[in-house]
Write a protein that binds this DNA or RNA. Structure first.
Lengths: 237, 237
DNA sequence: CGCACGATTTAAGTATGACTTTTAAATCAC
DNA sequence: GTGATTTAAAAGTCATACTTAAATCGTGCG
């Protein structure tokens, strides 16, 4: 009945988390649902120790709230720490995936142009070289159904931009962008090569950063992310 | 010796967290430092249960990693979940505050214009009214050393924009923006009223959103956040 | 001499029972 | 019916015993 996954992480608490987290973010337990610890103990056949640790983590993500004499209450989505990497992963794996992908794409579209502008002023020589290399690899793999290879370079390119921005928070979004790009590739028709214009834009961004031209780096990046937004509108207007 | 704060949260685990979290994010324990649970038990005079729960939460934030036969290892800052609201608060309260404020301001500057553009297309009539009200209140409190009152309306204005964007992740940044704005007010000379131009810009944004003019809403918001970035450059170029 | 493999030992992980504290809810007094 | 008081339910805490993984060390073999 419960316990859908055959346990993801290692350690009982991690397994419990991997079971409860996705379930809650998927909406299996409507906000207000009360879970009692001893009930969870029985349901998952683990000790209090394990249940309590898992609940603590869920509580730190604001997915639940634990109160004496009441129990562990599931909180409404507005309370959730939607920036928590774990929460993002759980939601991407659940029925909320489309909505989550939209939010993340909007986030990307806001952040990446700014990151590119900063990168133009901050990137090291090594990072500039890296960018150019990734862009050229994207060009090389952009034709002839080499989508998986293309994706690798695409992710690496955007990761480098975000890291080169010098902003720790932007840098942290590398994983998120990787997820979004992977999700896009996944849903793309397998034989459609990436848009040549988008590929060119990446080369342009690399050039602009190397030339320390923040304005152009930002503009071309914005065009890239506009493309991503447009795709979403096409997929589900 | 330790246990600086007289305990912030309620519950022993929360107190331990409130002690360890700030210490780690402040860099009191350099990356690689190993904390043994039994040592923590003695240092804070709490039971195993409590220590373990606190450590679990720290682990979920990627501040530490717990391994058998090794102990609880403090991770390098690159690993930290810098988007975790708790981590943000801890760092804002510690020596990393200036750097954190910079990162957050850059984040704001990227997000808010995008949010305003979305809000122009999404805001409900009630939200439009709310925006106008907050903007007018800002005008009213912008002169005569009413900074605390001004701050309240300023925060409310930006919160409304973020919520009205319809993007759950943008909405979640309300608290962060509030922190940044509060931090700015705090450091401002007490008798300097806010920049009249900035005040006007808020009114313009409210108008643009009401008029469903995404382009103008975005542009005026960008000018507001540019101002915030400029202030940072002046404070520490 | 070095490497591999197994015993050792350390520290985290798990289980359990007893007890405390908070607090919602029911009961009682007025 | 309102307010004070009691009750009980569930989380919180503690202490202890036991299990498990993995570094370390030692021995023996190549």
């Amino acid at each position: 009945m419960d316990n859908q996954g055959p346990s993801t992480g290692r350690g009982l608490h991690a397994r419990l988390l991997a079971s409860l987290g996705p379930a809650i973010t998927a909406g299996d337990y409507p906000p207000g649902t009360v879970l009692r610890t001893d009930e969870l103990e029985r349901r998952f056949d683990v000790s209090r120790t394990v249940v309590r640790e898992a609940v603590r983590v869920l509580e730190s993500m604001h997915l639940v709230r634990s109160r004496r004499r009441v129990g562990v209450t599931v909180l409404p989505p507005e309370e959730w720490d939607v920036f928590d990497s774990q929460v993002i992963r759980w939601r991407l794996a659940g029925p909320d995936r489309p909505r989550q992908l939209r939010s993340l794409t909007a986030l990307r579209s806001a952040i990446e142009p700014a990151a590119a502008a900063l990168a133009a002023g901050q990137a090291t020589a090594a990072q500039c070289a890296e960018l150019t290399e990734h862009a050229l690899n994207m060009v090389a793999t952009s034709r002839g159904q080499q989508l998986p290879a293309y994706l690798v370079h695409d992710v690496a390119f955007h990761r480098t931009i975000l890291r080169a921005s010098g902003n720790e928070m932007f840098a942290r979004l590398g994983d998120v962008v990787a997820e979004v790009l992977a999700g896009r590739t996944e849903h793309r028709v397998m034989f459609s090569d990436p848009d040549p214009e988008a590929v060119t834009l990446h080369v342009r961004v690399a050039e602009a950063v190397r030339a320390r031209d923040a304005e152009r780096a930002e503009r071309y990046t914005r065009e890239i992310t506009w493309g991503a937004l447009r795709e979403l509108d096409i997929l589900a207007p």
